[in-house]
Design a protein around this nucleic acid. Structure first.
Length: 585
DNA sequence: TAGAATCGCCAC
DNA sequence: AAACGTGGCGATTCTA
């Protein structure tokens, strides 16, 4: 493609004329070139702003931040739409180095993901999206060039083209989103970008000494259990020659473990957890193996390795959050995955508030069950939430026809298993495994459950039917998932029915959560407080200790407001605490 | 031998 | 052999 018309801006007096053009443009293509990928250790070099007529390349190395004030005013104004591809990246550099919150985002990366409607095949780099929607091949070879020195013509042309291509790309993508009825969810996603950029930039604090101590404790236990296991498994081994050590089983190899178990007379078809769980009571060696696995997992995934993610500049962990991480719209997290830290207090307590600060840990109470109640309009389930009673107790009471205070602990546990399983499309067998009952008992429990909540039964059946008949589903915001499963294949049809029940609920949970992230971030704007982690239905905020109570109130209110935008038939409840660590005290 | 595939397990 | 949905990720095993 032809290089766009561009102007390199290096002097303050040149800014004035380009600003005039920029303020009259309703849509502005925005891109930055930086000296590296990490906003804490790298600097933004170029800010590219594209209008239909011309693209302005502002050489940031030539401007002190004060001189950029008129440009920053434009970026912070909702007056124009700022089109960016993966705006989170640019937003972090602009916030960190120029102190400006990007306003009016249209993100072509997120737009492309939404238009793919859950396809796992489509990729969404600028190069591929441009090819897919404009049939234009971009040359990205300059992307990783050195942006810290004198800029060559080819670099400037590349920088200008990346920004200017965003203009036609937005037009095409917006038309596509409108066709597909996806503009409401697109707005929800675009509004959320800044909150995630701020969260990543803030990072989360991890107490290194506490973490090391925890890892050391696990290592000692791990070693002891491994030794015991080798003893137990070794009993079946043939005696080796005098010079050989007795053969060690690789305890991390399911294959070798299975063979070793066979030698001591325990035949298993596989060594996955659910199989071993069934045998754990019968054979102590199996219980040891399960313990060993848990400890191994802890050491490998939650060991010293996590400390490598601490940024040397900030001494905090800045994980990577993917805003649309799953087809249901959930955010996912990697490097490291802060969403999968073990729930055990020993681990969670290492994520602390630094001196003089506090954490606010806030999560939606039973959000998916509330969504199910709202969608199905089930009178009794709605009533259970309105009464404010414990949901699992209320469910057991409804199922068994006993008063609330007559529900035993065991009955409550079974009702809990049902409440959690039902939104995943669980069957009788799955429930039996989960609550440790017989298949017959599980079947009866499910019957009673649906007798207690008949509209839930009906809604779930209809949702499953819709998934099979239409091959797609939508969430409350209109987020679309087109299933890639074949309804004429027995297994895939069964999976389709399960996903069809779960996806609208899980996806609406994502909608509510993202709205909450946006509102929380906006509410905290003028305080010394910032979101530092988000886990599907939970938001962790770090703030100055003196404003902890205020912050808790702001966070709770923002989350409840977000829920109420989507749910009108059930109350929305947020549980929140002020804490020194990542614990729901 | 590097990268893909698989197993297994952590979270919500 | 599967089972209850969505992921990330480490270790082992397979494969080009």
């Amino acid at each position: 493609m032809n290089a766009p018309d561009y102007r390199l801006i290096t002097r303050p007096e040149e800014l004035a004329s380009c600003l005039e053009a920029l303020w009259t443009a309703p849509h502005i293509g925005l891109d930055t070139e930086t000296t590296g990928l990490d906003p804490h250790t790298s600097r933004p070099r170029l800010l590219q702003l594209a209008t239909p007529n011309s693209t302005y390349l502002i050489d940031l190395f030539h401007f002190p931040t004060e001189a950029l004030a008129p440009v920053l005013e434009l970026l912070a104004s909702p007056h124009s739409v700022k089109i960016a591809h993966n705006a989170k990246f640019d937003a972090k550099f602009l916030l960190k180095h120029l102190g400006v919150r990007l306003e009016g985002v249209f993100d072509t990366y997120l737009a492309s993901q939404l238009a793919s409607a859950g396809s796992e095949i489509d990729r969404h780099s600028l190069e591929l999206v441009t090819q897919r929607y404009l049939n234009i091949q971009l040359d990205k070879t300059a992307q990783l060039s050195d942006w810290s020195g004198e800029l060559a013509a080819y670099q400037l042309e590349y920088a200008a083209r990346d920004a200017s291509i965003l203009m036609p790309l937005r037009e095409t993508l917006q038309a596509r989103l409108e066709e597909m009825d996806l503009m409401v969810v697109a707005r929800l996603e675009f509004d959320c970008v800044m909150s995630i950029a701020r969260m990543e930039l803030a990072g989360v604090y991890l107490d290194v000494d506490l973490w090391r101590a925890q890892v050391d404790r696990v290592r000692v236990t791990h070693r002891a259990v491994a030794d015991a296991l080798q003893q137990e498994l070794g009993r079946g081994a043939l005696q080796m020659t005098l010079f050989d050590e007795s053969p060690q089983v690789n305890l991390d190899s399911p294959q070798q473990v299975r063979d070793a178990l066979a030698r001591i007379g325990i035949d298993v078809e596989g060594t996955s957890e659910w199989r071993l769980n069934k045998l754990a009571n019968e054979y102590p060696v199996i219980q040891d193996l399960l313990d060993y696995r848990t400890l191994s997992k802890s050491l490998s995934s939650y060991g010293e390795g996590v400390l490598d993610f601490i940024n040397q500049d900030t001494q905090r962990i800045h994980a990577d959050f993917r805003q649309i991480g799953t087809p249901t719209g959930r955010i996912t997290c990697s490097s490291p995955s802060l969403q999968q830290m073990p729930h055990a207090v020993e681990y969670r307590s290492c994520f602390r508030a630094p001196a003089g600060r506090k954490l606010i840990v806030a999560d939606f109470s039973q959000i998916e069950m509330r969504i199910l109640a709202d969608f199905s309009r089930d009178r009794r389930l709605i009533e259970a939430f309105k009464s404010g009673a414990d949901l699992h107790r209320a469910t057991a009471s409804q199922m068994l026809g006993v008063p609330l205070d007559g529900v035993t602990a065991l009955q409550r546990e079974k009702a809990k298993g049902l409440n959690y399983g039902i939104v995943y499309g669980m069957g009788a067998e799955g429930l039996a495994n989960r609550i440790g009952s017989s298949l017959t008992e599980a079947e009866i429990l499910i019957q009673r459950y649906f007798a207690a909540y008949p509209e839930v039964d009906r809604w779930l059946r209809e949702a499953a039917d819709r998934a099979v008949n239409e091959g797609r589903c939508r969430t409350a915001s209109g987020r679309l998932w087109i299933f890639q499963l074949d309804p004429f294949d027995r297994q895939q049809a069964a999976q389709l029915r399960r996903v069809g029940k779960n996806a609208p609920i899980q996806g609406t949970g994502s909608d509510i959560f993202k709205r909450a992230m946006t509102l929380v971030d906006e509410a905290l704007g003028k305080y010394d407080a910032s979101v530092v982690n988000s886990i599907h239905d939970e938001i962790v905020v770090e703030c100055e200790a003196g404003i902890a109570r205020t912050t808790l109130q702001l966070v709770s209110k923002a989350m409840v407001d977000a829920g109420r935008e989507f749910l009108s038939r059930v109350p929305v409840v947020v549980d929140a605490v002020v804490s020194d660590a990542w614990l729901k005290k």
